[in-house]
Design a protein around this nucleic acid. Structure first.
Length: 348
DNA sequence: AAACCGGGGAT
DNA sequence: ATCCCAGGTTT
């Protein structure tokens, strides 16, 4: 039996019942694929349900504000995905009559849609013959063809593409794509793959040659930069003061006034005037220290809570007042900020 | 080609 | 501590 037949047969009896597999709605497929970029299925699932409930159609997403969309995306990470989806929904709504594009090249043009996502939408929503290549497929194929070139380099990626083209089933693009990803996810895993129960084991040279564990190969690791964040949490009764990030990490999300440097505790109060002007002599109520790890950053964060009896006389231009409990609910924040908010609730 | 962009789970 | 996850964009 051909590899594609073995795959699809295995898939038909072993597949998980995932919500986006029970629809042909390109909007739902698009949403699920973007949400699952670099994100585990279990992690994305609750967000998928939330979004479908809040925004059942492209028009509903287009009619929302970016702030609402980011609030709903809060905690999932890679927030450019949410900004791009919202922007693209408005584009489709305003310029394409709310009709999702139906050709691969048109889909590939959409913001936040690359080769993988375009192939996924094309095959799952329209059954077009484009093979998907994601982390799962790279792993399965590198083992199935004993590709020793690093899969994160152009040579390795080219060989993966050529290998996939050899086994791709143009007659069953949707099923083939689902099946090969599902195999990578459930059987041909990065660590401790269960080759015993793999439908392709008899056709796997990596298994025959004892190379499963060594494949796929990867080269070069992005190093993690260590940086410092010093946050100023001004409190006046139930009010606080926040700012919106304009670029870079957590763009368009909200945070307590921030200095992106390490400020010695003794000199914290010297910086207050950079954010607000007050007639009082401010005092540090308490401080909270934590480390926050991202894929490319290690943030040493310090939050200093400064309680005031009266509202500041003056706020720096980008800072504005909100109800403390509106943060995270109405103003989307990073998980780092949420960690701080949670620590406050505990020592209440 | 390399850096940037989040967060969490498994090992 | 390290790797990886239904990747994409920018430099």
């Amino acid at each position: 039996m051909r590899i594609s037949e073995l795959l699809i047969k295995w898939y038909s009896i072993s597949k998980r019942d995932l919500p986006w597999r029970n629809t042909n709605d390109p909007y739902k497929i698009w949403l699920s694929e973007v949400m699952l970029q670099q994100t585990r299925v279990e992690q994305g699932m609750p967000y998928y349900h939330k979004f479908i409930e809040h925004y059942p159609t492209i028009s509903d997403l287009a009619n929302a504000t970016e702030q609402e969309v980011l609030t709903l995306w809060q905690g999932l990470g890679y927030y450019s995905r949410a900004r791009n989806m919202h922007s693209t929904a408005q584009y489709i709504s305003n310029n394409l009559g709310s009709q999702f594009p139906q050709k691969f090249n048109e889909i590939l043009e959409l913001k936040g849609v690359g080769a993988y996502t375009a192939a996924a939408i094309s095959s799952f929503a329209f059954n077009l013959p484009y093979p998907v290549i994601d982390g799962n497929v790279q792993r399965v194929v590198s083992r199935l063809f004993c590709i020793e070139d690093p899969i994160n380099k152009p040579i390795g990626q080219k060989k993966i593409r050529e290998a996939v083209d050899q086994i791709f089933d143009k007659r069953n693009p949707a099923k083939f794509n689902q099946a090969i990803m599902e195999l990578g996810s459930l059987v041909c895993t990065p660590k401790n793959p269960t080759c015993d129960s793999c439908p392709l084991s008899i056709k796997c040279p990596a298994l025959l040659n004892g190379k499963v564990k060594a494949l796929p190969k990867k080269e070069g690791k992005t190093k993690v930069k260590e940086i410092s964040h010093t946050y100023f949490v001004f409190k006046v009764e139930d009010k606080t003061y926040i700012q919106q990030r304009k670029e870079g990490i957590w763009k368009n999300m909200y945070q307590f006034p921030l200095l992106e440097l390490d400020v010695k505790p003794e000199t914290i109060l010297d910086h207050v005037m950079e954010f607000i002007e007050t007639s009082e002599t401010p005092m540090i109520q308490h401080s909270y220290q934590t480390k926050h790890l991202l894929s490319h950053r290690k943030i040493n964060a310090n939050f200093y809570t400064i309680s005031l009896h009266r509202k500041p006389i003056f706020l720096k231009s980008n800072i504005f007042e909100i109800e403390l409990n509106e943060l995270s609910k109405k103003y989307p924040t990073s998980v780092l900020t949420q960690k701080f908010l949670k620590s406050c609730r505990i020592d209440d």
